[in-house]
Amino acid sequence: MSVQPSLRLRGLRKRFGQRSALDGVDLTLEGPQIVGIVGPDGAGKTTLLRAIAGLLEIAADEASVLGFDLRKDVRALKAQIGYVPQSFSLHRDLSVYENLRFTARLHRLGNEEFERRTESLLARTGLLPFADRPAGALSGGMKQKLSIANALLPEPALLALDEPTAGVDVMARDEIWRILEERRGKSLVLISTSYLDETEACDRLLYLDEGRVVAQGTPAELRAQVPVRLLRAWGSDPRAIAKAAGALPYVVSARVRGPFARIEIAAEELPGEARLYADFAGLVPRVRLLEPAPVDMESALLFLSRKQTQGTSAP
């Protein structure tokens, strides 16, 4: 694993019949890291991951993954890739162990090496007691962990995971992330997700919409781009507070989060501190506490999606 994993895409396009799934993706990634891919449904997240894994016939101005050209023969590339598709796709009739052995054979892993890695992977995923169980008989979380173990078996330089934690319970999600964390310094991990807390754990985020990367950066960078200030208001009736705050002209959105009302204000319309406190003091259900909060990923992603819809509706 001495190779520094890298990825350079310019004008990556993919059409399915009339529909354009990827419409000129530009992306450069260098070095091992965890990259989260986010975006609304149908943005092209799955297609992008499948394209990078060499599964699709694509068109591009430049498409280099780990130094291999995606437009040419990708067999050698596949030897260094681990891929976890969205739905469970291992052989249901084969046992956990048999599934892994099959992958190992195609990767031409030696027997000893295979046993060593399998032992360790199964132990880390907690699948060791189920090694002989047919994959189809595993629970949802265990299936997902098996898929990931299967993808990690060749110790790939690039790992592509398509919503690996969707529909998985909290415990299993935690375990899956612990396993991914181990790869942070070793592989280029591309993961699509719709969980906000997971995006915070990524080194870098790509926001995909309508087949293009419309924003990217570290979570902090993305948050910094957001021209919104966040406030938390607390009182006896947060629901009513949110409703009343929403009526203020400069408030973009106001929602209930736990005991607080979460209030977003457009940065350029942010009034002076005095006016702000005055306005909130005057709200009908009394606001007992108003404090600024750090911009979170929710704000960042909501902002990005709003920006996109406005951008496309008014060309």
């Binding site: 499948r50 894994a53 739905s87 291992l90 195609l106």
Partner: peptide, 14 residues
């Protein structure tokens, strides 16, 4: 249908 074909395609095989 089971997706195993795609999964196999992601492996170094043709």
């Amino acid at each position: 249908e089971n997706g195993t074909y795609e999964q196999m395609l992601a492996l170094p095989t043709s």
